[in-house]
């Protein structure tokens, strides 16, 4: 990290935090919003034989979480390269 000047380090960290906040927002929207807080209203919608809120709580959110980590990994690897802080 010594060859990097400080301003690019700052920029990388800010960009990193931005990705982080977006991902955590998605995590919260599905894990807590759709599955718990708004499960009641969503349950009026039928989805392949499930009530939608119930489906998110027992199935959907888990799929979203998994995809989210793979998206985050892909996005961060790209960010590392853009800011030239990637490994090898």
């Amino acid at each position: 990290m010594s060859q990097r000047d400080d301003s690019s380090g700052q920029a990388y960290w800010r960009a990193n935090l931005r990705v982080l906040f977006i991902c955590l927002a998605i995590w919260a929207i599905f894990g807590f919003g759709a599955s718990i807080l708004f499960a009641g209203p969503l349950n009026h919608i039928q989805f392949f034989g499930f009530k939608l809120g119930f489906w998110f709580a027992q199935q959907g959110s888990i799929f979203v979480f998994t995809l989210l980590i793979f998206y985050y990994t892909w996005r961060m690897n790209r960010l590392d390269r853009e800011h030239d802080v990637h490994e090898d």
Binding site: C23, W27, F54, Q58, S61, I62, F65, Y72
Partner: peptide, 21 residues
């Protein structure tokens, strides 16, 4: 029933925090 969702959400959603933070 639905109340059991806390285990499903809790024991998987934690991996998002683990991976991100």
């Amino acid at each position: 029933g639905y109340d059991g969702s806390v285990y499903l959400l809790g024991w998987t959603g934690g991996y998002v925090l683990l991976a991100l933070l």
